[in-house]
Design a protein around this nucleic acid. Structure first.
Length: 194
DNA sequence: GGAGCGATGTCCT
DNA sequence: GGACATCGCTCCG
């Protein structure tokens, strides 16, 4: 389990460091796990694309709290997105988890996605909305959970895997500050979203 | 395989 | 009323 200090850095640093780590979710007694292969950094008040840009509200309060907490928001009336808060308390910033390479509990993930068990694992969690659905993550159940606490049922592990090469590119699906190079992914990994 | 588009809730102006 | 850190479906080549 990654310690709080891991998250107390700038979002660009944390995003890069999270690549290759394993996101673990305890679901109905089962272990759902996947390697983080794609992520995006969002800064605080200086980043026009960040939820924290307009200042602290009830919705984004987690971003201004201590590092290592889950920030889950609802988007497009249908999907959830999972972020992990960064920077020391009082300073906003987060990393959006965009894609996983499924490792454990793929049958359960497929079920949660409403797909056949035989589905190509590439389709299970490649995209922030898919990722949350595959792991059964919702704002109501996961926003504000401490990802450095074993009790929360959501945390990140280091299994020693080190990405050979990391690709930096523009963030996806945003209008403001869209050109900022704050998306990172593992080069050549088939589970990165399109 | 790629472009276009509708679904659909919450937050902010 | 409009925007939104998305996805899956349709239609077209």
């Amino acid at each position: 389990m990654l310690p709080r200090a891991f998250y107390a850095e700038r979002p660009e640093v944390v995003a890069r460091a999270l690549l290759g780590k394993v996101l673990v979710r305890r679901y109905a007694g089962r272990r759902l796990a996947g390697r983080i292969v794609e992520a995006e950094a969002y800064l605080g008040m200086d980043d026009p694309a960040a939820h924290a840009f307009a200042g602290k509200t009830a919705r984004n309060a987690v971003l201004f709290g201590p590092p290592g907490f889950a920030y889950v928001y609802f988007i497009y009336g249908m999907y959830y997105c999972l972020n992990l808060s960064c920077e020391p308390e009082g300073q906003a910033g987060c990393v959006l988890l965009r894609a996983l390479e499924p490792l454990e509990g793929m049958a359960t993930m497929a079920k949660l996605r409403g797909l056949a068990e035989s589905v190509n694992p590439r389709l299970l969690a490649s995209g922030p909305g898919r990722l949350c659905r595959a792991l059964g993550i919702a704002r109501e159940t996961h926003n504000g959970l401490d990802a450095t606490s074993r009790r929360s049922g959501l945390h990140v592990e280091d299994d020693g895997f080190v990405p050979a090469e990391i690709v930096v590119s523009a963030r996806v699906g945003i209008r403001r500050a869209a050109e900022w190079p704050m998306r990172v992914s593992i080069a050549g990994n088939r589970h990165v979203s399109g």
